[in-house]
Amino acid sequence: MTEEPDSPLAAWSRLRGLTAARIGLARSGAALATAPLLDFRLAHARARDAVHAPLDAARLAEEAAALGLPVLTVHSAAAHRREYLMRPDLGRRLGAEAAAALAARAGAHDLAIVLADGLSARAVQDHAVPVLAAALPALRAEGWRVAPLAIVHQGRVAIGDAVAAALGASAAVVLIGERPGLSAPDSLGAYLTWQPRPDSTDAERNCISNIRPDGIGAQEAAFKLVFLLRAMRARGVSGVSLKDESGMAAID
């Protein structure tokens, strides 16, 4: 079917190019037509699956091994997904055996890196290793002593504070699946904290959000990550007083 340049369909297609919002949807009467209704259901189903899909920690550990770091897998104090969703406090604490397992690998580390499922295991499964593969060479070149990688089941952002404490690291990076939206079920967040404590607040963290192929790509995320870690170490702070001034530049 061909469209006249000024037909309503062509005009809507121009407008849709300006936003990812669901505009110009087909109607029947006042209601959505069947096709956009089912499109919406599919997007919601994918977001729901992203929330509930379990992390394949064994596969993630295998892929992470190529980064040249030892890998540990532990659990938070939340036993399962339902408890994780209802008790955010448990997702911030280490499970019974986790602290000892991490403490056995404590040492003179500058940086603890945590891979946590958060609200989208798929995000960390797909996007965390490429970000680290791009960031670690620069960090090593700048003398960062990186602790063993910690993969955490049912973890929230603040679990990084407990992991860093157990490993004896002076900074924490948490790569975690973000709350999935309909258009982005696999968005990864990176949370950076300098000298994390049990009572560190979100105001003391820096965040790189929306890491995914259609958002901030792995190379750009790695660039921002290294930039912020460098600034944290130079100034001895993290959080609201440390702005992301890395601009839009990226490693090509």
Partner: peptide, 8 residues
Amino acid sequence: GVPGADDI
């Protein structure tokens, strides 16, 4: 009133 009920 949000386009398609999906706030992007």
